[in-house]
Each structure stands twice: as structure tokens, then as C-alpha cells.
Amino acid sequence: MSTVQFRSIEPADNPALAHIIRSVLIEHNAAKQGTAFSDPETDFIYEQYQSPGAHYFVAVVGGQVAGGAGINVLQGEGDGKVCELQKVFLLPTYRGMGIARQAIERCLAFAKAQGYTHCYLETLPELANAIGIYEKFGFAYLPGPMGNTGHNGCDIWMIKEL
């Protein structure tokens, strides 16, 4: 198996990443309204990460986009000190290799360097393996959502102090 390389998102990555996100949600029976599955922005991921304080790391293995993860400011949180870990998805072939962990590490290091004090995320119970990874990173459960993510279909909310 080739080594994983991480790079910044490029406009040409939009179709591959949209396909990965939607196929993973279908795979886990989590293709529902109010999630990244139905979010029109899923088709324009590159554009979402072009503002200051935002970055999307694309994982590439053997020349193929395997998945990725991103950090962006949490909309609706006022002071701009809370970021959101977003769109952590990998194709099934590349799971179990530590790629998600490496992507999250890069995201959290970027977030800290940007001056964020906390990192928030939203997920679904169907994504149990991802939840386990978030727990290992020290994300704690919240009783309800924060900010204005537009993903009202997610019902697990977590936060981590950076």
C-alpha cells in the first residue's frame, strides 16, 4: 500500500470528495436530510475552505483521493474562537491505516495555530467508529448543538478544548 500524503484542497477535488462523503453516509445508513448528504455545499467543498481560519486536508494514497478532513470557524458562535471539525470521511479501502487520525491531528494543529480555543463537531450515531476516534482525541459530549451549522440531522455534539 502506498504512503498517505496530505495536501490542501484544490478545486478539482470537489467531485471526488462529494462522492466519498455521500457514499460513506449511504454505507452507514446515514444518508438523511439535515446532514452533509443533502447539503448542497457538499458539491463545493473547495469553496467552503477559502476564508481565513479555514483549511481542508485531502488525503491522497497512490494518486487517489482517499478522503480528508477540514477546520472552519463555527458559524453563529460570536467571538470566532470556536472552530468546527468538518467532513472527516475516508473511502472504506483506506480505513484502519491511521489516516483519519492523521487528518484530525493536522486539523487540530491548524486550529490551534489559528488561535481557536475550542473545536466543535457534529456527528451521527451510525458513525460509531468515527465517534470512537473523536473520544480518543478527548472530545466530550454536549447536551445540544452549538452555532448554526445547518446540519439539524446530526444528533451527537462534541467539543474539545485546544
Results as ranks from 00 to 15, higher is better:
Ser2Trp: 07
Gln5Thr: 14
Gln5Asp: 09
Gln5Gly: 03
Phe6Val: 00
Arg7Tyr: 02
Ser8Glu: 09
Ile9Phe: 02
Ile9Glu: 02
Ala12Met: 13
Asn14His: 15
Pro15Glu: 12
Leu17Gln: 14
Leu17Cys: 11
Leu17Arg: 13
Ile21Cys: 13
Arg22Tyr: 06
Ser23Leu: 13
Val24Glu: 15
Leu25Val: 03
Leu25Trp: 15
Ile26Asn: 13
Ile26Val: 15
Ile26Ser: 07
Glu27Phe: 15
Asn29Ala: 15
Ala30Met: 06
Ala30Arg: 11
Ala31Asp: 15
Ala31Gln: 04
Gly34Glu: 02
Ser38His: 07
Ser38Val: 01
Glu41Thr: 08
Phe44Asn: 13
Ile45Trp: 00
Tyr46Ser: 08
Glu47Gln: 10
Gln48Cys: 08
Tyr49Pro: 13
Tyr49Lys: 05
Gln50Ile: 02
Gln50Val: 00
Pro52Gln: 05
Pro52Tyr: 07
Gly53His: 10
His55Ser: 05
His55Lys: 15
His55Tyr: 03
Tyr56Gly: 00
Tyr56Lys: 04
Tyr56Gln: 07
Phe57Glu: 07
Phe57Ile: 04
Val60His: 04
Val60Ser: 00
Val60Asp: 05
Val61Ser: 01
Val61Gln: 01
Gly62Thr: 10
Gln64Glu: 10
Ala66Ile: 06
Gly67His: 06
Gly67Tyr: 12
Gly68Ser: 11
Ala69Cys: 15
Ala69Arg: 12
Ile71Pro: 03
Ile71Asp: 04
Ile71Leu: 12
Leu74Trp: 04
Glu77Leu: 03
Glu77Ser: 06
Lys81Asn: 11
Val82Tyr: 10
Glu84Ile: 07
Leu85Val: 05
Lys87Gln: 07
Lys87Ala: 06
Phe89Leu: 08
Thr93Leu: 10
Thr93Tyr: 11
Tyr94Ala: 03
Arg95Ala: 13
Met97Cys: 11
Met97Asn: 13
Met97Glu: 12
Gly98Trp: 07
Ile99Asn: 06
Ile99Arg: 05
Ala100Ser: 01
Ala100Trp: 07
Ala100Gln: 04
Arg101Leu: 03
Gln102Phe: 01
Ile104His: 02
Ile104Phe: 02
Leu108Gly: 14
Ala109Arg: 14
Phe110Lys: 06
His118Phe: 12
His118Ala: 12
His118Asn: 14
Tyr120Ser: 09
Leu121Gly: 05
Leu121Asn: 02
Glu122Leu: 09
Leu124Met: 12
Pro125Met: 01
Glu126Cys: 04
Leu127Gln: 03
Asn129Leu: 15
Asn129Thr: 15
Ile131Ser: 07
Glu135Thr: 11
Lys136Leu: 10
Phe137Pro: 10
Phe137Ile: 02
Gly138Asn: 12
Phe139Ile: 03
Phe139Cys: 04
Leu142Asp: 08
Pro143Gly: 05
Gly144Cys: 09
Pro145Asp: 08
Thr149Asn: 04
Gly150Arg: 06
Cys154Ser: 09
Trp157Asp: 07
Ile159Ala: 13
Glu161Trp: 09
Leu162Ile: 12
